[in-house]
Design a protein around this nucleic acid. Sequence first.
DNA 1: TGAACATGTGAATACCTATTCAGATGTTTT
DNA 2: AAAACATCTGAATAGGTATTCACATGTTCA
Lengths: 100, 100
Amino acid sequence: MVTMEEATRLADLFRLLGDPTRARLLYALLEAGEMCVHDLAAEVEVTDTAVSHALRLLRTAEIVSTRRAGRMIYYRLADAHVRMLLDLSREHLREVSDGR
Amino acid sequence: MVTMEEATRLADLFRLLGDPTRARLLYALLEAGEMCVHDLAAEVEVTDTAVSHALRLLRTAEIVSTRRAGRMIYYRLADAHVRMLLDLSREHLREVSDGR
DNA sequence: TGAACATGTGAATACCTATTCAGATGTTTT
DNA sequence: AAAACATCTGAATAGGTATTCACATGTTCA
């Protein structure tokens, strides 16, 4: 069973993935493994500031984690569950798309 | 690789799951298999109208599908991918919660 | 120490969206 | 046909949020 509180937290999780910028950031990380803010901004084609705001939300929710190296901060997906979630979703979408 | 268009569609998918009402509806369906609008409204504790609006979004996105039986319309999760996605997410959340 | 670089922060705006209300559609029952 | 029921629809409002701008923080290198 899923309690109301649990449903709220699940919705919170999904809502974080439910933004094009954040989704692109996460899939970029899924592919690359690790990236710094500036490179993520270039890849996703938004400003550094927007990326920073987006990453903060993902960091707070423990969807991504960080590693500092000099003045750069490298971001990566937090754990295997997140990777599986992104992977499964992408697969789902591609199979659904096939049927068109 | 994930194209920009694909990322947009993935975000669209996640955004639909990223609302407490819709999340509760989906997890109710994951458990029960099939439910009519009125029972869903009772389970999730919102008005029939709000449920109807929510279900329309999920239906349009092919996340749920329907079956008419008399004057009632039964909703169910559209496919196995959706069920896996919900299941995996719930598992993720529960494991993360353990670490507190 | 100071300049250049990488990232983070806070406030403001503009857009999006969930819910509500009133009423419409379609279905069954008598 | 009319009443009762189940669901849907459209418009309006209220609340949330992504982006931008200006600036702050922290780090390296000369």
